[in-house]
């Protein structure tokens, strides 16, 4: 049979919708942001065209927000993964297949309620009449949880668990069970089998889930605002302030550009690390 080659025109037309989407939804906003980031704040707020690096030089003024975001987002992601993994493992390995879908849906259930409602519930649980009151009852007094980094982490784990469990579940579910038998057959205890086979082979799922959660956490401002009470401040909050309170668009644009760069670099190296580790990329090519 002869090879059918598509004309460049047809190929171009087929790719056009994706290209248009990328241009308007990704490239254009980024360009606008980049241009704005070199501008100046108008007298009453907003943007006036200029070419200055002041906004970038001023970035250290939000250093603490960057620091908070860059510690709590990875930590929250890690905690979510650590808690999601056993759940996903239980679902994929221990639960009889006919119950799996039901259980998986239950894991997702919190997502059906409003995010704000969930945070309000946590405000009550972590507030002084909630968990701290229980702790006081068993003798641990004056525990302050609300409006602390701990509260933000708890909210992150709770809020993002439904995003982390399914990808890990999928990777565990399609894990070839014969590999586990092979490992046991070669003398590995169940614990060693878990570390040497199950965990490395489910890393792509962990990586996918972690990326989702990490990216969302990096840009989050609702969670720190509600469970951090304005005290645990993320870059997202800084952006909300810059755009919605102090109306310093150019500086906000510079902070956004910095955030995008940080995210891109982090995600790039993380993915490279994980993919290198599991060799899934090459496996996928074969």
């Amino acid at each position: 049979m002869s090879t059918h080659t598509r004309s460049p025109l047809v190929t171009g037309l087929l790719l056009a919708p994706a290209g248009v989407f990328f241009f308007f939804m990704l490239i254009l906003p980024l360009l606008v942001m980049l241009v704005f980031s070199f501008g100046e704040r108008a007298a009453a707020g907003g943007y006036v065209p200029a070419f200055t690096f002041d906004n970038y030089l001023n970035l250290p003024a939000r250093g603490k927000a960057f620091l908070n975001t860059l510690t709590l987002a990875p930590l929250g992601t890690l905690l979510t993964a650590v808690i999601a993994f056993p759940m996903a493992y239980f679902l994929a390995v221990k639960v009889p297949p006919k119950w799996r879908v039901v259980m998986l849906v239950l894991v997702m259930a919190p997502f059906w309620t409003s995010q704000l409602m969930r945070y309000y519930a946590w405000i009550m649980i972590l507030g002084s009449k909630g968990l701290p009151a229980w702790l006081a009852w068993i003798g641990i007094t004056d525990v302050r949880l609300l409006n602390t980094p701990t509260a933000v982490l708890i909210g992150a784990v709770y809020g993002f668990l439904p995003l982390m469990v399914p990808p890990i579940y999928v990777s565990l579910e399609k894990l070839d069970k014969r590999l586990l038998e092979a490992s046991a057959d070669l003398g590995a205890t169940p614990w060693h089998t878990f570390w040497q086979i199950t965990l490395p082979l489910s890393l792509p799922g962990v990586a996918t889930g972690s990326m989702l959660v990490f990216i969302l956490l990096m840009g989050d401002y609702i969670l720190p605002q509600y469970l951090g009470g304005g005290k645990v401040f993320f870059i997202g909050n800084a952006l909300v302030d810059l755009f919605l309170q102090s109306r310093n668009w150019p500086y906000g644009a510079a902070v956004s550009v910095a955030l995008v760069i940080i995210m891109f670099v982090t995600v790039y190296f993380y993915m490279r690390f994980v993919l290198g580790k599991t060799d899934q990329r090459r496996a996928a090519l074969v």
């Binding site: 014969r178 038998e181 490992s183 057959d185 070669l186 590995a188």
Partner: peptide, 17 residues
């Protein structure tokens, strides 16, 4: 894992990673 026997599996079950 405590038996002194080893197995060759039908589809080999080699560890892909």
């Amino acid at each position: 894992y405590r038996r002194p026997v080893n197995m060759v599996f039908q589809h080999y079950a080699l560890f892909p990673h």
